[in-house]
Write a protein that binds this DNA or RNA. Structure first.
Lengths: 124, 124
DNA sequence: CTAAAGTACAACCAAATGGTTGTAGAAAGC
DNA sequence: GCTTTCTACAACCATTTGGTTGTACTTTAG
């Protein structure tokens, strides 16, 4: 009943596109060498239409770009989007580092008002 | 009819878990500060059971770990898995670099037998 | 011109996803 | 003890997903 849940973030699309082994394989292939959709399709044990849909999912996520060349559609990887996803994950790691650093500094202040949590996370 | 498609790779699970804004937000929260499931649930406009399911998806992907503490279940982030995903994406970027380098070396050999593809990819 | 190759897209289907409510059990509070 | 809190899980539902086949259009080949 909630109609306004049209989030479908860019990150949603990117990670969803990567959450399938066939699609990750397509990304690997077209990152190394651009290929037509039918050339790609020949490499998988599924119909042409199925591969076409996988490419469409990757395209919506901007992980690949299609470029019409004569009668065929050439697919090549878009590394900019891969980097965007990488950076997002790296930010999570930074959040963790920031938190650890924060805990350490709080502990070293040792004002010790009335805290009883975060006892076993200060090592490492 | 094809029953043997029980791939469900680790990467499938990780990226699928990350393909939802609520779940990414949960990861951000528990990376910064471990929290009980009900504390997490209080932060979202959905039922406790729904949040519980999201945590379960993150747990299956090993992006978070649950630790029973008394009657509550404490969720904290597992950075090792985030790093694993990051590395996977970085490998895609490396594949691209390798390919560009390869094309360059082929061109610089300038033996030029009978190639007619890969004409416009040597710049950048 | 005609045939084949490459693509697009609709219709259909089974299974998974993301949400709900309801019931039940274990731990803590009074 | 009894009640509340926190959790687990089943059942249900609508929508999405990932696959199929079939039809039609455009471009190249002969």
């Amino acid at each position: 009943m909630v109609v306004e849940s049209v989030v479908d973030d860019e990150a949603d699309r990117i990670f969803h596109a990567l959450a399938d082994a066939t699609r990750r394989d397509i990304v690997v292939r077209v990152v190394q060498q651009e290929q037509s959709v039918s050339t790609l399709a020949a490499g998988y044990a599924m119909s042409f239409a199925a591969v076409q849909k996988h490419v469409a999912v990757l395209e919506r996520a901007a992980l690949v770009v299609k470029e019409r060349r004569g009668r065929e559609q050439i697919v090549h990887g878009n590394l900019e989007t891969v980097r965007r996803a990488t950076r997002l994950l790296q930010r999570y790691e930074e959040l963790w580092r920031y938190r650890v650093q924060n805990i350490s500094s709080i502990l070293s202040e040792d004002r010790e008002e009335d805290r009883e949590e975060d006892r076993e996370t200060e090592n490492e």
